[in-house]
Every structure is written in structure tokens, then in C-alpha cells.
Amino acid sequence: MLFHVLLLITFIIVILIYEWKHYQGRDRYVFVMLFALASIYLLAAIVDWRIPEYVQGVDFLLSPLKKPLQAWLDQFQI
């Protein structure tokens, strides 16, 4: 795991150096914000931190529709 984290840190540094000069103004600001967010998210995935999952969120939002639909569809499936 330590090796993966080190690889991620190296990747972050290289990408930041490479991309930084390509963008100016708002583009650079948005890039840095999103990149920081994405780096934390990827780190969380690597070190197995429990963070809210996207699919679970969508699942929760659609749960009122999901159960009746699944029950209905199950009648027709093998």
C-alpha cells in the first residue's frame, strides 16, 4: 500500500508541474481545486478509507422506485 501511495504522490507532483503552466486564471483555479479533490478521493480508494460511495447514494435516492420495480421484474426473469 505504501508503494501505491508513493506512486500516487509522484503522479500528483508530475501532473501538477506539467499542467500548471498550461492554464491561466479561472481554469487554473478550477483545475487545482478539482485535482486536490480527485487526489484525496483516489488516495481514499487506495488506502480503503470509508467514504460515501456514489452508487450507494444513487441507490438510496432511487430506493422508493427500486424495490417495487425489482419485485415486478423478478416475476419475469429466470
Binding site: H22, V30, L34, F35, A38, Y41, A45, E53, V55
Partner: peptide
Amino acid sequence: MLKVKNYHSLTVPLGMILLATAMTNL
């Protein structure tokens, strides 16, 4: 949505988010 001039600035972070989500969600 973010009113950015060049969409290239969003591609790398977006790719990282997609990868992390793919690895953890399914």
C-alpha cells in the same frame, strides 16, 4: 457548469475521480 475556457483542465481530475469510483463502487 464551472464556466471554464478550456475543458482540458478538467480531464485529469475527472479521470482520477472516474478511476477511484470504478475501483470502489462496483
